[in-house]
Every structure is written in C-alpha cells, then in structure tokens.
C-alpha cells in the first residue's frame, strides 16, 4: 500500500452566511490520478483553494504527507511539493515561455540579492543552471521551440501545457489541475489527456484534478469524488460513479436548471 499524500478532514468554507463547502473529506494516495467533479458552482474550486492555501478554511484540516498545512501560506505549501494550475489559464503574459517556467524555480533560488548586484560567479553558475533545467523541462514537454515566445503569443492549447510545465518546475509531488480541459476542443482535450498521463509517469506525480467534463475524468482518473452544493455526495471508481443515482440526479438537475 502506498502512502497517503493528501488528506482533507471536514474542510468547511463559509462566506458570510453561505456555506460554499461543507465537511469535505478525502484521502489521495501517492501515484493516483484523482478527480473531483460536480456541477458548476458546487464548490470545487473553493475546495482547491483551501488545499493550496489561497483560502483559509473556516474549519477542518488539510494534511500533506501527515504534515498539517491548514492555513499555511501558499508559497510555503509550494516549497513542500504541491503545485497548481488555474481554471482560466493564468500565465505571466509579458514573460517568455522560458521565463514563465523559470519562475517556478524561484522558491529554491540558490543565489541572493548581493550575488545579483555584484554578478558573482555564483550568480552566473545558478542562473545558467536554471536556464538549462528550464530548457530541459520544456524539451520534455516538447515546447522547446517556443521557449522565447511571449506567453500571450501562444495558442490556447499550448498555453495550458506551459502552465503545467511552469507548475512542474516547482518540483511538485502533487499536482493540482483546476479544470484543465475547460475551453478546449475535443482534439485538444484528447491531447491533454495523454499529456497529463505522460507527465505523471515522467515526473512521478500524483495528480488531483477538478473537471466539469465527465468523459475526460472518466477516462483519466482512477478514483472520482463528486461534489454538489458544497457536499461530497459520492466517491469511487469511474464505473461506480457513472451508475450512482445521486450523481445522475445532481447532473440532471444541473441540466434542467
């Protein structure tokens, strides 16, 4: 049995009187691709934001490898080995693709401000080393030819890949993807599915993703949890989820609304 990489216990988030997420508990094992689905506005992204430290939960706990990370600053959580992407791709649009990736190395920067100002040998050594690593990373996701393009110049599908590459640069063990297939056409979606599987193997990752697109999740994830109105209504293997009457109701209700 592999280790539990992420554990949420009764995570709850209240905004004023509104309960966005209610007592959300999951356990994710190392090496899994875990999916969280649910209709729009079910609280998926809120749950994500509590895990990554962007939101402080009203109550409940988050553990990363047994370490309590509840309410920890996001940049500290990143340095522990958790990275994320955003629903509406958020690249640094005025930076080049390579520079976008390099920002991911920032939390383990090996030179300081004095090295920077005096341009010490240490500065050159680690700056070059970072750039080489960055290029290698881009090669491994087949984006090396786009390294010097500005992020805003890329087509949509490639931006998503850059965003994932940027998250990989932080050296994560757990990768959180917020609706990675949102806004993609079927071809791009299929591409992305293989891409996620490929980087998961190559970088030895655990993947936790939120998705709206059922088909995408069913094909990719080993375990799926379903969130509706902030409450987890089901968890299981794709085929179990497909047949679960509560899930069907939640999704049909979504369609009727």
């Amino acid at each position: 049995m592999s280790n539990i990489i992420l554990k949420c216990e009764n995570l709850t988030m209240q905004f004023g009187g509104l309960v966005a997420v209610n007592k959300f508990s999951i356990q994710i094992r190392e090496g899994m691709i875990f999916g969280l689905i649910g209709p729009n506005g079910a609280g998926k992204t809120t749950a994500f934001n509590m895990i990554t430290g962007n939101l402080k939960p009203t109550s409940g706990k988050v553990y990363f490898y047994d370490k309590d990370i509840t309410g920890m600053k996001p940049y500290k959580i990143v340095s522990l080995g958790m990275a994320r992407t955003f629903q509406n791709i958020r690249l640094f649009s005025n930076l080049s693709v390579l520079e976008n990736v390099l920002t991911g190395y920032h939390h383990k920067l090996k030179y300081n401000l004095i090295d920077t100002i005096l341009r010490t040998p240490r500065f050159y050594k680690y700056e070059n080393q970072m750039k080489e690593e960055g290029m290698k990373l881009l090669e491994s996701v087949r984006l090396e030819e786009k390294a010097n393009f500005r992020a805003s110049e890329l087509p949509y599908g490639e931006r998503r890949k850059v965003e994932i590459a940027r998250a990989l640069a932080t050296g994560p063990k757990l990768l959180l993807l917020d609706e990675p297939a949102a806004g993609m056409n079927p071809q791009e979606t299929t591409d992305l599915m293989y891409f996620i599987q490929e980087v998961k193997e190559k970088f030895d990752l655990t993947v936790f993703l939120i998705e709206h697109d059922m088909k995408f999740v069913m094909n990719l994830c080993e375990t799926i949890a379903v969130l509706d109105h902030g409450v987890k209504i089901a968890e299981g293997k794709p085929e179990e989820i497909r047949k679960n009457p509560d899930v069907i109701k939640a999704y049909l209700g979504d369609i009727n609304a």
């Binding site: 962007n54 996001p74 990143v78 649009s93 005025n94 930076l95 920002t103 991911g104 030179y111 401000l113």
Partner: peptide, 28 residues
C-alpha cells in the same frame, strides 16, 4: 541587474498575475 535576474522575473510575474505568482511559490 536586479531586473535581469530571478528577482526581476519574480517582480514581473507579480505585475502580470499576482495570484499565479503566489501559486508558483514566490514570496510576493
């Protein structure tokens, strides 16, 4: 020299998208 270094890149990242910069592990 500050601009042309990891520090400068982090600063520009904050300018372009602060939330994403935080998510990259940058101490903004």
């Amino acid at each position: 020299r500050i601009v042309d270094s990891a520090f400068g890149r982090a600063m520009k990242a904050i300018r372009d998208d602060e939330d994403a910069a935080i998510a990259m592990g940058i101490n903004t």
